[in-house]
Design a protein around this nucleic acid. Structure first.
Lengths: 197, 197
DNA sequence: GGGTAATCTAGAACACGTTCCAGCGTGGCG
DNA sequence: CGCCACGCTGGAACGTGTTCTAGATTACCC
């Protein structure tokens, strides 16, 4: 489940996989300082040692590139979280803590976070498959934190959706400087109350 | 409270106010067919009968322009809703219905909605004041629908925030074709459960 | 009414995302 | 080995958001 980044495409050769990695790494690096606008396609291509046309063959737009970067990062967080799950008795608190931990992870590279989230929310329909993938990983992160022993109920799934909405929107408001981290925590905790209803 | 669109700026002359209206109207018209990308600054300027430089004097970027358009539209919805409030006993249901009504209003011009919401979520810090204003109007819409007889409690305000997050994020997922209207309704209803906790 | 500062206009110019093209390698197949 | 298809390269070119400039117009104050 953590594999298969492009299910429908023919498998990439080793050199191609390496190019893809170089591109993603370069994008993340440029984003880390400078954020969304600092990720300039010409510069990504040059630093990744790839022609501009090739970059566009791998990622059909800047938004695709940054959404793919977000997939990458989220999967890292997911692995981390699976290795070291949050402790606690209350499922709601575990979910809130897990998301806050992810939040602090993003906070460590705020410019990178800004770039990825801007891309995510700016994405139009042509990127919906990739965005959906990000959404699926986030949902899985929450479900993991709930620590279910049996399949989730309809109500739980509905609550997860609202938590996901809250997570996403709170991230946006924090990135644009309209909410503090403390406020984000409160919002997430409020949404998580829906789990223990 | 529904006045004062630009509190810090010197008052506009009549001609200037008319220009501003023409620009906003033109932007909405172009957005209505074609969405975000159809709102091209040169074309807005030309159709509004204004030089490009002037357009930029009134709205320092395309995002500013579209966020201002959203303010306009939201205020119209707010007035409508105040004139014809949603009936019902349950505050949560009233809020959900009110938001769904607003939703259907946006649905009537989906391209316009797409343009405004894309702008809203793409906005960076330089637009945060204007985005905040939109957020304030939305929050007020929800508070109105709650029909409070006394000031809201801390818990109610927290719930309103989560509902607002849900509203906003659900709108985005609907616009990018990743959620149906039925799903949006469910998400809003789920979030509104927080009100009657 | 005259002077002056602010505003508006027309248009060029610039930046960056994106597209396109001609030619060069390269890897696989007869 | 020769050939072909495909991917890669370097670079030009295009579209649109944004900035800038020089001059015309307007608003305001005395």
């Amino acid at each position: 489940m953590t594999t298969s980044p492009r299910p429908t495409a023919p498998p990439l050769t080793e050199r191609q996989e390496a190019r893809r990695r170089r591109i993603l790494h370069t994008a993340a690096q440029l984003a880390s300082r400078g954020g969304f606008e600092a990720v300039q396609m010409r510069e990504v291509a040059e630093l990744a040692g790839v022609a501009l046309g090739t970059l566009y063959r791998y990622f059909p737009s800047k938004v695709h590139l940054l959404v793919a970067t977000m997939q990458d990062q989220l999967q890292l967080f997911q692995e981390q979280t699976r290795k070291h799950p949050v402790e606690g008795d209350d499922p709601g608190a575990r979910v809130a803590d897990t998301l806050m931990r992810t939040f602090r992870g993003l906070q460590r590279e705020p410019q990178l976070a800004e770039a990825m989230v801007r891309a995510l929310t700016f994405a139009d329909r042509s990127v919906s498959a990739e965005v959906d993938q990000v959404s699926r990983i986030t949902g899985q992160l929450i479900l993991d934190a709930m620590g279910l022993t049996e399949p989730p109920t309809r109500e739980q799934l509905a609550a997860v959706r609202v938590i996901e909405h809250t997570w996403h929107s709170a991230l946006v408001t924090w990135l644009s400087g309209r909410a503090s981290i403390a406020q984000v925590r409160i919002d997430l905790e409020t949404a998580c109350k829906l789990l223990t209803l």
